[in-house]
């Protein structure tokens, strides 16, 4: 028994933590608040989720809409952020031109852009993807830039001492050295991207988890509201797990460092 615990203690700790959280939530909802128009128990959320998934199947279009907006916004951020970050690290001129925009846009609350983007791009997918993109691109851009800038000076000297070409320096040294930084940028962007989805769908959407939450809030449908929030949370967890797998495959040499 003790042996079993020692082997799986991290997993057991995590499971216990979740169970405790759910128990507190349940007691809070049923005993302390005891008003289902304010707070419902996790059991009620589970029941509602089951209904929306397997009986009415009404959750799927929302899930699909939110996921695809997130997916496109995230991919676009990687496609733009990583190369631009690299260019900034490699060229002082590019850095000087991009840096003021990067810092300004990164620190401006994205919610301020949402109405403007909807005005310009309409209430279709374009504006929503753009809002997600604005959320994701900066952490990815900044980490790609930073990761390539802080590459160990001796590594660069090593390449030069072997008379490697500039191209080889990039592919064999600078790029692999930046990968861990890019991955942590992707992790930061994940949370910001999901927030972006919620914001985008609050403004003039007809489907999506953000819309679902917003609509449920307006109509005081507390169980549905919690179903939407839970779905966002689970999407986040799924995203983190995928990134963890990607990290394992892309940086096998770091495996031992982490455990």
């Amino acid at each position: 028994m003790l042996e079993l615990y020692k082997k799986n203690s991290p997993a057991i700790h995590k499971l216990l933590s979740i169970m405790c959280g759910l128990a507190v939530w349940h007691v809070l909802a049923t005993v302390i608040v005891a008003d289902s128009s304010f707070l419902v128990s996790p059991l009620a959320v589970a029941a509602k989720s089951y209904e929306m998934l397997f009986q009415t199947a009404e959750l799927y279009p929302h899930l699909l809409a939110s996921s695809s907006i997130f997916f496109y916004g995230y991919l676009l951020s990687i496609a733009a952020g990583v190369p631009l970050g690299f260019l900034m690290a490699l060229s002082p001129a590019v850095r000087d031109y991009v840096h003021p925009w990067m810092t300004t846009l990164y620190t401006t609350p994205r919610i301020a852009f949402a109405p403007v983007l909807l005005l310009w791009l309409g209430i279709g997918a374009g504006a929503k993807v753009a809002i997600v993109f604005l959320g994701c691109v900066f952490p990815i851009l900044i980490n790609s830039y930073y990761g390539m800038r802080v590459v160990n000076r001796e590594f660069v000297e090593l390449a030069r001492s072997f008379r490697l070409t500039r191209l080889a320096l990039f592919w064999k040294i600078l790029l692999p050295a930046s990968v861990p930084f890019i991955l942590s940028g992707l992790r930061l962007a994940l949370g910001r991207g999901l927030t972006g989805v919620a914001i985008a769908e609050w403004f003039g959407a007809t489907e999506g988890l953000g819309y679902l939450i917003f609509f449920a809030g307006q109509t005081l449908n507390v169980p549905v509201l919690f179903v939407g929030v839970t779905a966002f949370a689970l999407l986040g967890i799924l995203g983190f797990e995928i990134l963890r797998k990607v990290e394992e495959i892309a940086t096998p040499w770091r495996k031992k460092l982490q455990t």
Partner: peptide
């Protein structure tokens, strides 16, 4: 300078091994 032929090997103080290799 460093654009020339590869005639010397450099052994670095900090080993400078690439951690991904």
């Amino acid at each position: 300078g460093a654009d020339g032929e590869l005639l010397m090997g450099f052994v670095f103080q900090g080993a400078a091994l690439l951690p991904w290799r």
